[in-house]
């Protein structure tokens, strides 16, 4: 049943991504409603799939990396829907739904090849949840950054095309970027701390410098500097957008690090 819901979700997200993509290229506003409807449908079946995972027969199993990616995808859509219903910026879907889809496809492709995290303590659940929430923050910041750079480019080059008319105001994107990092950063910090605690319990050392941990720390330091720069010396607007786009590479590399991690090493 959970698997069926998962497949339905996947199909609906693919449809929503295609629909949102064509929405961003076409003058008509009509597609926004269709796209949004399909996304909400996908989100509903995704929620059912996740609830079943939590309470179903496999609920005692520790969270796998695949679960984490599925949760990440669900959170991205949730954040999108919240922003969409508050600010009515449909074009956000053209960027966020494809990202959620990539995350979900990875979740579907990976389960057998990646070993589940070793159940050390309940802290593992906290570690996974918090890290993923932090990742969601940085994903939204990344999307806001990309949208900012596109709109900045369009305004500078005076290309008043369809995308220009659909993208929101620059300061809104900058604000979204800032809020996402401000929320994402403390969550990632807690995620790393709980991860280190689990590692200490199972291995006796906080850090083992495997690719995942290395990239996580590099990412953490990077975003720390970005946040500090914004608050102190005015790294906002275009520079902030560039930095968050670059920083997102660190997030991806960390996730790849987790995926590539051999069964021998622990989180």
């Amino acid at each position: 049943m959970a698997a069926v819901c998962f497949m339905i979700t996947l199909v609906l997200y693919i449809l929503a991504a295609v629909s949102f993509f064509s929405y961003s290229l076409r003058r008509s506003e009509a597609l926004s409603k269709v796209s949004l409807g399909v996304t909400v449908g996908g989100f509903a079946s995704h929620t059912i799939a996740l609830v079943m995972r939590m309470v179903g027969p496999s609920s005692s199993a520790p969270p796998s990396f695949s679960d984490a990616l599925s949760f990440l995808s669900w959170m991205i859509i949730l954040v999108f829907l919240v922003v969409e219903f508050r600010h009515r910026i449909h074009v956000l879907g053209s960027f966020m739904v494809p990202l959620a889809l990539v995350s979900l496809v990875s979740a579907a492709a990976l389960p057998e090849t990646v070993p589940t995290l070793q159940p050390v303590l309940k802290t593992l659940w906290f570690h996974v949840t918090l890290s993923m929430l932090g990742t969601v923050g940085f994903t939204v910041a990344f999307v806001a950054g990309v949208m900012y750079l596109i709109q900045d480019r369009l305004l500078k080059s005076k290309q008043f095309n369809v995308l220009y008319s659909k993208l929101p105001a620059l300061d809104f994107l900058d604000h979204l970027n800032q809020q996402s990092i401000v929320l994402g950063f403390p969550l990632l910090t807690l995620g790393i701390v709980t991860g280190a605690i689990s590692a200490d319990f199972s291995r006796g050392s906080y850090v083992s410098w495997n690719p995942e941990q290395t990239w996580a720390l590099v990412t953490w330091v990077f975003y720390f500097v970005v946040l500090l720069g914004r608050l102190t010396v005015g790294w906002r607007a275009k520079r902030a957008a560039y930095l968050t786009v670059i920083g997102f590479a660190g997030v991806i590399l960390t996730l790849v690090g987790v995926a590539l991690k051999g069964s021998s090493s622990l989180s």
Binding site: Q151, L155, Y164, L167, P168, A169, L170, D171, F172
Partner: peptide, 8 residues
């Protein structure tokens, strides 16, 4: 144009 730079 102003509204594409400042939302409010």
């Amino acid at each position: 144009l102003a509204k594409k730079i400042f939302s409010n």
